[in-house]
């Protein structure tokens, strides 16, 4: 491991052993619908509460990823997991049955990237041979916690985003310990700073998070000396159309033109023309299911070779919002290379 600025370069890069995604009905109908391992029309997943449904998705995502490897659950040394429900109950209840040492994370919607970055650090540091990063979000559990009851007949402004119902799991192995050694690898990770440019509008998360994405990407380019051209795809977690456009502009202001190779999981997961979804998808599950289906699949197929995956999270709570505070945001980056 080499530390350059706030970026860690992995000279013995951890390998992504397997990945899996579980998605809901709207995601199934979206442009990436056919890429998910499991996509259910019944988003209760057979459970009585939305929190149980979300837990079930995490359980299924991790189980599916594990089944794709030759390991048993006890071979996984640590799980890094988190979600949007208060006190991260979807992770605690969803992963309880596996009996694996667990590190609970709260990075809001940046959790997938955060979990992969921390897993990679532990693996590269020699503290583990196999780790997993798991996260989820559910439209219905997020709505009741952050917005209104589901049947409430209000309107959403066009900048609002639509929480993705989905869970993703990534299993990583230490370099040399991987069975699937030809799989995509984690080449570098940049941990994000808490960033804000004064946005308070709870219906404009993309606008609140764009500065964090731009800050982390800028620092990665500065730390490593790499250029946007070195990557086939630079993909953010859940900025939506407006947030993505603002991030591109903030990067241009720093001299980095990423416009021709940048995309956002929130713009990929739903049909952009359908204004039902506002500015695009959001939630921990948004970047989790897009990474753990389409992106890693394209990398394995050789269509993408170097990808920058930037998880973006808004770190507010309903309490801080009602108290009139700004929305702090964070973005964690991992460089995935085949």
């Amino acid at each position: 491991m080499i530390r350059m600025g706030s970026t860690v370069i992995f000279d013995e890069p951890p390998v992504i052993e397997s990945w899996a995604s579980v998605a809901g009905n709207h995601e199934k109908k979206g442009p990436l619908g056919s890429y998910f391992d499991i996509a259910e029309e019944d988003t209760t997943f057979g459970h009585k509460t939305w929190e149980q449904s979300e837990s079930a998705m995490q359980n299924m995502a991790f189980k599916t990823a594990l089944e794709k490897t030759s390991f048993q659950a006890d071979s996984i040394d640590y799980i890094f997991a988190g979600d949007l429900d208060n006190q991260c109950i979807a992770s605690s209840f969803g992963l309880m049955s596996f009996n694996i040492p667990m590190v609970g994370l709260f990075g809001a919607c940046s959790t997938m990237a955060e979990g992969i970055a921390l897993s990679s650090l532990l693996l590269a540091g020699g503290a583990a041979n196999h780790c997993a990063a798991v996260t989820s979000s559910h439209f219905c559990s997020a709505e009741r916690q952050f917005r209104y009851p589901l049947e409430y007949g209000g309107q959403r402004p066009p900048t609002a985003q639509w929480t993705v119902t989905g869970a993703g799991a990534t299993i990583l192995s230490k370099s040399g310990q991987a069975v699937a050694s030809g799989n995509p690898k984690i080449r570098a990770a940049t941990i994000g700073r808490i960033t804000q440019l004064g946005i308070k509008d709870i219906n404009n998360m993309g606008g609140a998070m764009a500065p964090a994405a731009a800050d982390t990407l800028t620092r990665f380019f500065q730390d490593t000396g790499k250029k946007p051209d070195d990557f086939d795809l630079i993909v953010t977690g859940d900025l939506g159309e407006l947030g993505l456009s603002l991030t591109i502009q903030l990067l241009q202001a720093g001299g980095y033109d990423c416009s021709d190779r940048m995309n956002d999981c929130g713009c990929m997961v739903f049909d952009n023309k359908d204004k039902h979804y506002g500015s695009g998808g959001s939630g921990c599950g948004c970047s989790a299911i897009v990474l753990n289906s389409y992106i890693l699949g394209q990398m394995l197929a050789g269509n993408l070779k170097n990808v920058l995956f930037i998880g973006t999270g808004a770190l507010m709570s309903p309490t801080s919002t009602y108290q009139g505070e700004i929305i702090p945001a964070i973005a964690h980056l991992v460089h995935i290379g085949i």
């Binding site: 440019l197 946005i199 500065p211 800028t218 603002l246 903030l250 990067l251 202001a253 720093g254 001299g255």
Partner: peptide, 11 residues
């Protein structure tokens, strides 16, 4: 309160 020379007011 600044990212790449863009401050809060400009943003």
């Amino acid at each position: 309160d600044q990212v790449n020379k863009v401050n809060s007011a400009q943003y």
